[in-house]
Design a protein around this nucleic acid. Structure first.
Lengths: 219, 219
DNA sequence: ACCTGAACACCGTTCAAGT
DNA sequence: ACCTGAACACCGTTCAAGT
């Protein structure tokens, strides 16, 4: 018996309607990942093979569609964090979890752009997802504090803010490669480390040329 | 004799044209600060008392107008950093400078939203502004390293990324008050501190309710 | 019960016509 | 030399008409 999540789907609907909704979600996930939030609903509807009005029948507003996609990603992230906590034993988990989230957001433009946007404050289901990830991070912090990886006094919202900041760095400076991101994260690690515990900086300091490396043709 | 900065203004132009350009820049700064990048050019033109086409005569594209405003803000920030370096003596400067920039961006939506956007990679004058702030931060780091406030190996671009991240936190979680921002910055401070130097966290950890505190009516 | 193309309001940008 | 309202292409959203 599969765990049925509430996806806002009405109880009884025609098979084609359900199929359309699934296609829309899948296509939207792809298009939003590639193009970010400014992807047009027209393109999504077209690639899903339905009329624009059908899209709006399923998701009353463009923001609702975005929210539905982002909610899936957050659930996946939380699930992965839970798995790390179950199987991780006495290994460090909080920082690797942060790395996982930030690395993923680096290749999913819409995911990051939406974090902290309007929907995060107003949409009820988004608030619940928020609460779930806060709850997970609380346990990750406690786990890593017990092992001496994380400083005392650090809260889950503190950590969420650090993650948010690193995501901004990851997506807004797209010229920086993965190594530059790893270096940045190794720097941020010092913020969550207990006093006296030093983590060396990874790699070398990026230069201004690293910021401007990508030729226009590759945009 | 005033220091005349190149603002892209043609040598000889009619008095009304120069006035229009100035009004547009001033109004755009206000509107962009309040509404962010999605402010409409129509509103800016209207509040400046000119036709929309006049706006586009002065700034061929909306992005050009945004860039002009942001360039002014960056120049101001660099000037303030220089002043801090001249008058600061042996006081810590790098972290207070970061605090200044992030605090300002908190109330200037467009300023932050544009950092790291397209223009930062393509616009030549933006690249120059970038180089100027990198050069300043280089000297701030050297100054603070000499006094033991900042860890070895930290580069100016490292620092710019930390600032960018904190700006994202500041603007994307608008419910958080200034104290929450100060706490976050006190946390980030651990990332730039030399090993062994501990800065206590300011305030208490924010809760999920702090994130969702603002009622819809106040948006 | 659901789908759709056409229509609407809005936006960034351009242009023909004015002075 | 500069200004402007009207026009254009595009977008999110709605609606009347279909099956």
């Amino acid at each position: 018996m599969a765990l049925e999540q509430d996806t806002g789907t009405p109880r009884h609907q025609r098979a084609d309607a359900a199929r359309n909704r699934q296609r829309l979600l899948a296509v939207a996930a792809d298009v939003l990942r590639e193009r970010g939030l400014e992807a047009s609903v027209g393109e999504i509807a077209e690639r899903a093979g339905v009329g624009r009005a059908t899209l709006f029948r399923n998701f009353p507003t463009k923001q609702d569609l975005i929210t539905a996609v982002v909610l899936e990603r957050i659930r996946e992230g939380v699930a992965e964090g839970e798995a790390m906590l179950e199987t991780g034993g006495d290994q460090e988990i909080l920082f690797p979890f942060m790395k996982l989230l930030v690395g993923r957001q680096r290749v999913d433009r819409a995911l990051f752009e939406s974090v902290g946007g309007e929907a995060f404050l107003t949409d009820e289901r988004m608030r619940q997802a928020h609460a779930a990830i806060i709850d997970l991070i609380d346990r990750l912090i406690a786990h890593d504090q017990r092992l001496g990886y994380v400083r005392e006094g650090l809260g889950a919202v503190d950590m969420l803010m650090l993650i948010k900041g690193a995501c901004a760095v990851a997506t807004s400076m797209p010229d920086l490669g993965p190594q530059a991101l790893d270096r940045h994260l190794s720097l941020v690690r010092g913020a969550i480390a207990p006093p006296g515990r030093d983590y060396p900086l990874e790699g070398t300091a990026p230069t201004i040329d690293d910021l401007h490396a990508r030729p226009v043709s590759e945009r």
